[in-house]
């Protein structure tokens, strides 16, 4: 029975000291640098003016009323509903009642939105620039090196992942090229950053991208018309079927305590 031929490549031990280690260290250091750069670039969230806060919280109040209406007795619920619905329909809680019914201004002309986009842009830049630089650095100095051998076998599908920049067909998949090592560290260093910087760091771009996937999850994004939200909520309240949780509570309690 023929053993599969084990490829042996004699590597210069200097490869480890002068390529593998520098790439790893540089990657970790850029992560840390990026974390602090992000902290410096972040500007404090903009404070809302009082009418805006009021508008937002008035909407939450309506939602609370709808969600928790069952704690109220029918009379007090009807009174509240009547008040909230009419206030919503009149636009009583709107931060700026004059612009009611007008179309929303172009978000590009709104300085607040622009600022938000600038912030996002800065974040992107802080990720892109170091990434490009390091990639270029590795390509320029270390391209084509096979720098390590994984201690476990892999299927050939991993070839493109582990041996980018080394164009050989017959090389065992276990050999890792320098460029691939760069990619591995790029995506795999999150636990290291967690250890160094704490779990809420902004060193890795993967988490950043995830956070960016749903930025406007807030209740009242800038692109939404608060008046529409209020009218919507008023409608929701109108059709709400009210059930009083205290109805028959005494019998429930007796049944519960005697059982």
């Amino acid at each position: 029975m023929a053993q599969p031929v084990v490829q042996t490549i004699h590597r210069d031990p200097a490869l480890f000291w002068w390529i593998l280690l520098p790439i790893t260290v540089v990657m970790i250091l850029t992560g840390i640098l990026r974390h602090y750069a992000m902290i410096l670039l972040q500007n404090a969230p903009k404070k809302l003016a009082l009418p805006q806060i009021r508008q937002q919280r008035a909407l939450v109040r309506g939602i609370n009323l709808r969600a928790n209406a069952n704690v109220l007795s029918p009379t007090s619920f009807q009174a509240r509903k009547a008040y909230m619905v009419s206030a919503y329909q009149e636009g009583k809680f709107l931060a700026d009642p004059e612009s009611r019914g007008k179309p929303r201004p172009n978000p590009m002309s709104d300085p607040a939105t622009m600022e938000g986009m600038m912030g996002m842009m800065k974040g992107n830049m802080a990720m892109m620039i170091p990434q490009t630089l390091i990639m270029g650095w590795i390509n320029a100095f270390f391209s084509g090196f096979v720098i390590m051998k994984l201690p476990f076998p892999l299927t050939p599908q991993f070839k493109s992942m582990l041996q980018s920049g080394v164009g050989t067909r017959d090389l065992d998949v276990r050999w890792v090229s320098s460029l691939s090592w760069y990619f591995l560290t790029l995506f795999g260093l999150q636990p290291v950053y967690n250890f160094i910087l704490g779990s809420n760091n902004s060193a890795n771009q993967v988490t950043q991208q995830m956070a960016m996937a749903n930025p406007g999850a807030g209740l009242m994004g800038p692109e939404q018309d608060p008046d529409k939200l209020f009218l919507n909520e008023a409608e929701n309240l109108e059709v709400l079927e009210h059930r009083w949780i205290l109805d028959g509570v005494e019998d429930r309690l007796v049944a519960k305590l005697t059982s």
């Binding site: 007795s73 949780i245 509570v249 429930r252 309690l253």
Partner: peptide, 15 residues
């Protein structure tokens, strides 16, 4: 009766 019901609810929530 409202008071009774609310007290009953509070006991129902916390025995």
């Amino acid at each position: 009766s409202l008071a009774l019901r609310h007290f009953a609810r509070s006991v129902e929530l916390n025995e």
